[in-house]
Nucleic acid binder design. Structure first.
Lengths: 263, 263
DNA sequence: ATTCGTTTGAAACGTTTGTTTGAAACGTTT
DNA sequence: AAACGTTTCAAACAAACGTTTCAAACGAAT
């Protein structure tokens, strides 16, 4: 554990974090990591044992403190609320703020971290699923019980799914913020963390606090004689009959001849 | 274009769609595809030219009709609304319903398709980004202009980001529905398409229709003397001072000795 | 200065990958 | 039946990958 070996270890894990975030686990080769880190190829297996272990190390050093901080903030919020249920916006803030602080630390490092976390939640590596499952479920249950007190009128399945919608919105927007800024031609960009936080909380809080479905509405109301299972929905009748829109067939097969190499 | 060759082509593309959805592009080898499809390895390059082209074919035959249908439904909704702006719930329905119909066609095929689409939006393959960019922007602009009329009080950046939140929630929940059902121990599962649609629309509509930020609130209000850039936010004061929560250091380095192979 | 455990270095290993090859089988047309 | 283009097949190809090896370099303790 000489200071030099620690430096090598750090250079590897930092470079790996960036490349895993930018390109994903599969597309990032160890040679690319070691080249950009300026270390020898064998150093990865020496310090981390394997490529998978390197990925574990990269992810764990961020995700673990992240979720611990969320738990702490949640407990703190509960204590401050006393007997009252914790406000929805406070709950959301405990979830989002620790993420945004790590992601928007000014440097370019945070962005790749966000992408990495988003990537791992959207399409986790098979060898990581079992390891993170327990921690994720614990966190999920914690938020579920808290929000159940905050939103007592909401049926449990409704609450469950709304939480998933919120998480999806948070991750998607967070991981793609840079792309979105670029896609909109530089408009809509703001590097203010508090503004980002407010936007996310505004949206998710409204979604979570939306009125619960009418009692009879939960069950299916489909009674109109739509053609092939395309029954219209509810409330508004604007798009009542969508049977007019035909399900387009796979593809019109523009080019029929296959693509062999010209002999 | 003999019927036999078409059958081979179809078996390849169907198997590839399933495997790409379940495992992703990188982790799926052509040998796995051809083995499970019961065709020869060389058939892929003969019929599609390359692995990337196979992925293109898989994706295009679904995404293209999907977006075309959304456009059609959107136009239809506009015509039905006449002079009035299209209701938010109708706009959302034009976006979600075509997706859900493809995903929940009863068979297990739809699920992998949803995962594939979700995967491609969360972490697109590099060679596909440029190709799908134009179409995606077109669709995005269409929805932006429509929702701008529906929600006239919302500043453009606010609308833009809320749309991204909604898309993220939709994709995340849709792609992981099966995992969520399993994680919750079989609870919270409902295979009713209309119920799923209603839940998504309820959440997203409330989020989009949330009151716009107060005029002075858009700019930063951070004035409190927080320590290292962790300024508290707005409205509620429950979590006002979060400086108490220390930013945990990377990792406590439990095991110091590296992991070489025992000599 | 010598020894010993630790860390680095260059090279190679074995495997898997997408792709290509060339001959055989097939179906259609002449 | 012969000739042709199309499709399949087994085999091999070159490249890239994660991993391993082993000697050299290093640092600290004796």
């Amino acid at each position: 554990m000489s200071p030099e070996s620690q430096a090598t270890r750090t250079r590897i894990i930092n470079t790996a974090e960036r490349l895993f975030g930018e390109q994903g686990f599969q597309r990032t080769s160890l040679r690319q990591v070691t080249d950009e880190a300026g270390v020898n190829l064998a150093a990865v297996n020496y310090h981390f044992g394997s490529k998978e272990n390197l990925y574990r190390a990269v992810l764990i050093r961020h995700v673990q403190p992240l979720n611990e901080e969320r738990m702490k903030l949640l407990t703190q919020a509960e204590q401050l609320s006393g007997e009252q249920p914790v406000p929805v916006r406070s709950v959301l803030e405990t979830f989002i703020r620790p993420l945004l602080r790590r992601a928007m630390d000014g440097s370019a490092k945070g962005l790749s971290l966000l992408k990495l976390i988003g990537r791992d939640m959207a399409a986790p590596q098979p060898f990581m699923i079992a390891e993170t499952a327990e921690e994720s479920e614990l966190l999920l249950r914690r938020y579920t019980t808290i929000l159940a007190q905050t939103l007592p009128g909401l049926p449990p399945p409704e609450l469950f799914w709304r939480m998933q919608f919120a998480v999806g919105g948070i991750l998607h927007a967070a991981a793609h913020q840079r792309d979105f800024e670029r896609a909109s031609g530089g408009l809509y960009q703001d590097n203010d963390r508090e503004c980002r936080l407010r936007r996310l909380v505004d949206f998710c809080a409204a979604g979570l606090e939306a009125p619960p479905p009418a009692p009879g509405e939960s069950a299916t109301v489909r009674s109109s004689a739509g053609p092939s299972g395309s029954a219209p929905a509810f409330v508004h009748t604007l798009l009542a009959q969508d049977g007019g829109i035909a399900f387009a067939e796979p593809v019109s097969e523009a080019r029929h001849s296959p693509v062999p190499t010209p002999p």
